[in-house]
Every structure is written in structure tokens, then in C-alpha cells.
Design a protein around this nucleic acid. Sequence first.
DNA 1: TACTTTGTTCAAGTTTTTTTGAACAAAGTG
DNA 2: CACTTTGTTCAAAAAAACTTGAACAAAGTA
Lengths: 183, 183
Amino acid sequence: MTSFSVANVSSSNQKDYLDEWEIAVIDLFLNAANSFGLPKSYGQIYGLLFCRDQSLSMDEVMKLLEISKGSASQGLRALRQLGAVSSVFEPGERKEMFVAEIRLRKLVGGFLREQADPHLDKGVGRLKQIESLVNDLEDVDARKRGVCRHEILSGWHRQMSRLLPWVKMIVGKSDRLPQKSSD
Amino acid sequence: MTSFSVANVSSSNQKDYLDEWEIAVIDLFLNAANSFGLPKSYGQIYGLLFCRDQSLSMDEVMKLLEISKGSASQGLRALRQLGAVSSVFEPGERKEMFVAEIRLRKLVGGFLREQADPHLDKGVGRLKQIESLVNDLEDVDARKRGVCRHEILSGWHRQMSRLLPWVKMIVGKSDRLPQKSSD
DNA sequence: TACTTTGTTCAAGTTTTTTTGAACAAAGTG
DNA sequence: CACTTTGTTCAAAAAAACTTGAACAAAGTA
């Protein structure tokens, strides 16, 4: 033997199986994704990357989680869009490699930006539409009721808008936690 | 005529159709329910009750929204469980009548209590399970990585637990908005 | 008791969402 | 250029979520 102990030159030198605890973590994120209204596979992918110190390729994600190419491709894209994973190009690797973002502040921020903010924006338009429909009402009492409801909804909208910045603040505090185990 | 202007003695004396603005509001809540992970019909039901000054029976909800008995029954039950609607027994009415809770603080509080808190509670168990699996690891480096991940997750859990009370606080502030239009 | 009204349950049907995998595009390599 | 590797797309299949309505239970009435 010319070079000892260097198995698997072809594939990247990573574990090609999941530890039991990793399966548990992946399952945890699977459930979390579900309750945030995201596909299970997004949670699985994030969970896997979260567990690993080293970046993984799409191919490794597919094989470790036993999911299809389509799911892996779409899941990684969406997670990157959310800021939950980022891709890196390892030197001498042709594949795109992925790592999980583990700063809660970033995760929450990305989620709010992609999910909550668009809803609030759409809300503005909807409220305007309701307002104009209400103003078209002939009957005075009916209009009074409509105006009242529109005002309530506008108030809620305002409060929600005020809440989001606070959430980002509060979650951001004391993000100082153990970093990667190696490095 | 012995008594003037008292039509519809049999059914409760309510509008039996939806105004255009009410349809828009119902649609708004339909979409909102969706993005909170609740069935569309829950949003529709809440939206309808939100629009009305007077309490509605399950039967009226079914007819106005053109949804089935099953949906109406389950939706109203779930919304009451969430604290988003409450039932009242109008004097001389055998049916149970429903009204919407319009205080945002109550709505948010109920939602967090029913949806977020249970998740956080389950999280405690999951974290313990992960911790014990990690501690079973033989390899020192592998264990170090597992411990690190468990610590990160515990930190996130703690932060989320701290966040919820703040959300309830912030949303509660200045809930002083127009109440019912009549009364 | 027999009848009516009101409300619940749940298996089956419908709709929506998610996943799959084969075809395709893009880019590196010899 | 021909060939390989890597990644995307999207129509169809599978899975999950939601809704329906008929059967049932509970409670009031005559």
C-alpha cells in the first residue's frame, strides 16, 4: 500500500450513515418544519446539516435521508432562500456543498422575512379593499358596523407589524452558545 | 296585523346573506387561518362571527358559509378551544349561539397556549432523549459533536420559552380599539 | 313513550400538498 | 466533440389534510 487508511477517495470522506441521535434530531426538525407549515423534507434536510460539522453535497443528503433528487434539490433551494442553509464550494470539489445556519437570530429573521412580512404586505391591500367595500354601503348602521370591523383589523395589523421587530430583537439576545464541536 | 315588522319568528332574526365586505373579511380570515396552520373552514367561521354583532347558531353558520354540519361542528369546537369564539345561550333559544372573541390579546394568548406551549413541552422530552442517546456514544469526538448540538438545541428551546411571554405582553398593549358597532 | 330538535362522530370522498423520477440543461473533462 | 458529473424542472403518483353527510347520541316536548 502506498497510502494507508484513505478509503473512499471517490466520495467525500464523510460518514455514510446516521447515528441514532442524529436520527432523533432529524425527526425533531421534521416535526418542527411541519408545525411551521414547511414540508417535512425541508426539516429533515436542515436537521441533517445541523448535525454535521462538515458540509454535505446534495448527493450525500439524498442518500443519507433516502429522499429523491427532486426533494433534495427543491428543499436545499428553499432552505437557502430562507437563510437556513448556505452553500459553499470546497476547494477541489466540483459539487456545491451545504452547511446549516445555526444562529437562531438568522433563522428566525429569515423565516419572518419570507413568511410573515409578505403576509403583512398583502394585508395592507386587503384592508384597503375592505375599507372601500364598507364605504360603498348605503345603510348607515350597516356601514357603522363595517367601519368598526375595518378599524379593528387595522389595529391588529398595526400591532403585528410592531411585534415582529421585537421578536427579532428578543431572539437575537444572548445567541452566544457553543459553536461547532471541531474547527 | 297584530304585531308589525316582526318577520321570521321561526328562525332567528338575522340577515340570511353575506354582504360583499363580509365576504372579503371571511376570505381574509380564511387565508390567515391557512398561514397559521389551521383549516380554512376555521378561518371562515371565525371571520363570519367577527363580522356580526349578534350571535349566530351553528345552523346559521352552516347556511351562510355553505359548509357541512361536520365542518361547522368541529370548527366551532376547535375555535372555542382556542378561545377564539365563545358560546352563549340566548334567553328563550334552545340552540347554542356563538360570538367571536375580538381582543387580539386573547386570540394570540389562546393560540400560543394551544399550539406553541404543547410543542415546547414535547420539546423537553425530545431533548432529554437526544441527550441520553448522545451520552451513549463511545467515540469521544462523536460525543463532543453530539453534546454541542444538544446544547444548541437546549439554548434555542430556552430562548423560545422566554419569547412567548413577551409576545403576549407586546400584543396585549393598547388593545383599546372600537368595540361592537351597536350595543 | 314517541317525536323533534340540536349537536357529535367518523368512514369515505374530495382537495391540496408533497414527493418522485425521468427528461432536460449546464458545465467541466479528456 | 463526446462523455461524465451535477443540478433543475415538472407531470404524475403518493401522501396528507380537509370536508362531507349519514348514523348516532342527548335532551327537550307532548
